[in-house]
Design a protein around this nucleic acid. Structure first.
Lengths: 233, 233
DNA sequence: CGGAAATTTACAAAAACCTTACACGGGATC
DNA sequence: GATCCCGTGTAAGGTTTTTGTAAATTTCCG
């Protein structure tokens, strides 16, 4: 028997909130609710929730700010934003930077539940995150920041390991520079990058883990999209 | 149980408007109405509608402008324009650039309902947009901009993927160059093209996905109309 | 302070994109 | 059938955008 999965719902509209609560109970979660921004933030910071569903439009404090404040305290807190419209791509991209996912209102119950499950799966996989990563011919101990490539021993920095871990958790897709800056560096939702520091770190990582860093086989560039890690299969 | 499908009707003529509302209710939609241009725009931007039916001739602000403003905010909002007459081809073409479809007044109820269903099917399929496209013998991962044709791995550019996605969403018909420039490139409703860049991109795509690019079997030319994609059955 | 790590700067290279120019071919006209 | 016109295919070249990386600079942390 598993421990209960606790979910906080921050939503001011009564109808939506109670509807959500019912659906969550029905699916076996243990939900709790807040109706204003400040209340939501307080509960989020006190309680320990596996996931927080956060409306963007709230009385008292908007969802973006709450999201940023929660993240400032706990980088790993899972958050799904409920946004008013599936509005334009850039805003959606911005949402994903702070949160783990977003769902556009009006949403179908089915879709929401799928997203919830996906986020929980990801974050809980993260908890029992492998202490050692295997990439190509290279074994990496994420605790000691050290690795081994055949005979040669390699030292990594914390940032490098965090990049690798994030990429490894999303190894099925390309991860954009913005997303890395947001999730690894903790930068705010600054769109429009002007820094090249991601690229530099990738270059350093390639020097360490790639045999031929002109022809990367593990840490790939997806031009126009970002970087992608190929897991040993 | 599905969520309700919300439709906004922007139409000034009382008789048509109430008639439309009745028909929509009868077919199980949840309609709302506006009678002037500015009112329609306001409701469109505030509420979240699955589809907007937009008359071209409106007091206060014409349908074209409303359409463009809605699209500026939300590229994905589904819009069907109601035009006064099936007047000349150019105007009709212009309509389709901004909107997802148009229906000429006077229209038959049956036809309108069919168009509504078609647009909804398309846009809602778009939401859970296939992450992988299958074309002929070729599998394409739209997030990683990469594909696979048997053993051979193929790299696509973002533009190429966007073109394929758009064609795939409209695989039942030929898509004109103007329409691609409008929906993929984001060009305004500039009629009269002078660029050949669409053709070039199509040629590149054919080199990648067609076995024999002199005899395309997937990415077809419809002379005088544009290009059409043949989906795998 | 001192040294390692992180970041910025600057430039080079590569890829993607767009325009131009010309060739080809179907369909219409004579 | 021969000819012309228009729409399409595509090679070649120039322009812009994106990425790689060396070197200089700043920040972090003991």
């Amino acid at each position: 028997m598993n421990r209960p999965v606790r979910i906080l719902v921050v939503e001011d509209e009564e109808a939506i909130r109670t509807g959500l609560m019912d659906v969550l109970v029905f699916h076996g979660y243990v939900p709790e609710s807040a109706t204003t921004g400040p209340e939501g933030l307080a509960k989020a910071l006190n309680g320990t929730f596996d996931l927080i569903l956060l409306d963007v439009m709230l009385p008292g404090m908007d969802g973006y700010e709450i999201c940023d404040r929660i993240r400032a305290r706990d980088r790993k807190q899972a958050i799904i934003m409920l946004t008013a419209k599936s509005s334009d791509e850039e805003i959606v991209a911005g949402l994903k930077l702070g949160a783990d996912d977003y769902v556009a209102k009006p949403f179908s119950i089915q879709q929401l539940v799928l997203r919830i499950e996906a986020v929980l799966r990801r974050t809980q996989a993260g908890e029992r995150m492998a202490r050692t990563l295997t990439l190509g011919d290279c074994e990496i101990d994420t605790e000691n920041l050290s690795g081994r490539n055949g005979d040669e021993s390699i030292a990594f920095t914390r940032r490098e390991i965090e990049i690798l871990c994030y990429l490894a958790q999303h190894a099925d897709r390309a991860v954009s520079r913005e997303e890395l800056l947001s999730k690894v560096w903790g930068y705010g939702r600054d769109l429009g990058i002007e820094t090249r520091t991601v690229d530099i770190h990738i270059a350093k990582l390639r020097q360490k883990i790639e045999l031929d860093n002109k022809n990367p086989r593990v840490l790939l560039t997806v031009r126009g999209a970002g970087y992608r890690l190929v897991q040993a299969g």
